[in-house]
């Protein structure tokens, strides 16, 4: 059986990759994908801690992840709608060029 540290390290690596993508890429869609990856890394931590907890019958980790997936789906829908709206206005999705709050 893989120890808890293996899952935590995997989650930390996924979080770092998502953070690197969100901070370094130009395209707003890739930035959003990086944020999704970070949310998924947090979910993996919840599941791993639930599996290795002393009271797994409470189901807290699993239910937190289910709610987290719901919030992430809402975030993806609103984020992609914002990107489409920005693209209509600026004709670009490059986050380096979108530097005004006022159109």
């Amino acid at each position: 059986m893989t120890p808890l540290a293996g899952y935590l390290i995997l989650s930390a690596m996924l979080f770092a990759i998502g953070l690197a993508g969100a901070l370094t890429r130009r395209n707003a869609i890739i930035v959003l994908i990086g944020i999704e990856l970070m949310l998924n890394a947090a979910n993996l931590n919840f599941i791993a801690f639930w599996r290795f907890s002393e009271h797994p019958e409470a189901l807290t980790g699993i239910l937190f992840v289910i709610f987290s997936i719901g919030v992430a789906a809402a975030e993806a829908a609103v984020g992609l709608a914002l990107i489409i709206s920005i693209y209509r206005h600026y004709k670009t999705t490059n986050v380096d060029e979108v530097n005004l709050l006022k159109g």
């Binding site: 953070l19 370094t24 890429r25 395209n27």
Partner: peptide, 14 residues
């Protein structure tokens, strides 16, 4: 380039 202008700071923070 597909990477942002300030990518070095992103890598350092990561």
């Amino acid at each position: 380039s597909v990477f942002s202008l300030s990518w070095i700071w992103g890598v350092l923070v990561t």
